[in-house]
Design a protein around this nucleic acid. Structure first.
Length: 281
DNA sequence: ACTAGCCCCTGGGAGC
DNA sequence: TGCTCCCAGGGGCTAG
């Protein structure tokens, strides 16, 4: 599912093909069977018509990532925000069975959005109001943006009683980490996902901090994780799923040297957590 | 202010 | 073969 490395991969791909292209038409069928309760989402037909009218004729300036959100900056002080949620991904000049949004571009090609489970959240806002946008201003710092250990630790420790996995996945603490990477980070750091944050030592916290940076960077270098539906904009799979040590490996041997543990699965905060009961303490 | 639990959604896999 | 049931889960929302 798209977490920081996958969204980064998508945005890097989009920035290679989209800048300076004009949006000439927009199509969607999101609202056919899905009536969004939120007025500001293209799943709402009225909103989609307005969205369409406002972006046709605008040029794409560039794309950026903030947390798990894709921001497509357009001319005319407009930005499209896309949260891909579980199964969403952009495709350039490609289609698949689950296209629910299609931008026609001035070079004759299409930017499409595949979203099997239709969980995505997509809306338009005024670029200069970015700092006031609730979806963005509640996000914590970017883990790969010179996030110091001191800052990381102090943000984590605001939730002393909460479980470390839940806190790592809390977007207001640190932005961009979801279920896959929280499992992998904690496996690497040797810390159990259900440990209360307040009972984690400074040495362990440092291991979590450095594992977070290492693993996110490693996944970006592998083009992200395609165990589920994620594909890059050319419909190619990433390779991080081949590196999993914990996520979805319940019942398999822990691959840490000399460990001998068997990966276990448990539910934490309504999400499945995977960990090694031997070397993760 | 916190958390637990439901909801959105649909394909894939297991079981019969 | 084909049906039913369960599972995947980010994040919004509500009830407690």
């Amino acid at each position: 599912m798209p977490e920081l490395p996958e969204v980064t991969t998508t945005v890097n791909g989009l920035n290679k093909v989209l800048p300076n292209l004009e949006i000439t038409a927009v199509w969607s069928d999101y609202f056919l069977r899905t009536a969004s309760k939120r007025a500001d989402n293209i799943k709402n037909k009225k909103y989609f018509e307005k969205f369409k009218k406002e972006i046709i004729g605008q040029k794409i300036k560039n794309c950026e990532r903030r947390g798990k959100n894709v921001l497509i900056n357009l001319t005319g002080n407009k930005t499209v925000l896309v949260h891909m949620k579980m199964t969403g991904h952009f495709l350039y000049d490609r289609r698949d069975k689950f296209i629910h949004l299609d931008f026609s571009l001035s070079n004759g090609k299409h930017l499409t959005f595949s979203d099997m489970r239709k969980f995505a959240k997509i809306f338009l806002f005024e670029t200069d109001k970015k700092n006031e946008l609730a979806d963005l201003k509640t996000l914590g710092p970017e883990p790969l943006d010179n996030l110091s250990f001191q800052t990381f630790q102090s943000r984590i420790l605001k939730k002393t009683k909460s479980k470390i996995k839940t806190v790592l996945m809390d977007q207001s603490v640190v932005a961009g980490i979801g279920n896959i990477y929280s499992d992998e980070i904690l496996w690497q750091a040797g810390v159990r996902p259900e440990r209360a944050v307040g009972k984690i030592s400074v040495a362990e916290m440092k291991k979590i901090w450095s594992a977070m940076k290492k693993i996110l960077r490693q996944s970006i270098s592998l083009g992200g994780d395609s165990m589920s539906d994620y594909r890059n904009i050319h419909d190619e799979k990433g390779k991080f799923q081949n590196m999993h040590k914990a996520y979805r490996r319940a019942g398999k041997k822990c691959s840490k040297n000399g460990c001998g543990g068997i990966i276990k699965r448990m539910i934490i905060g309504g999400r499945s957590a995977h960990f090694c009961p031997v070397h993760q303490k």
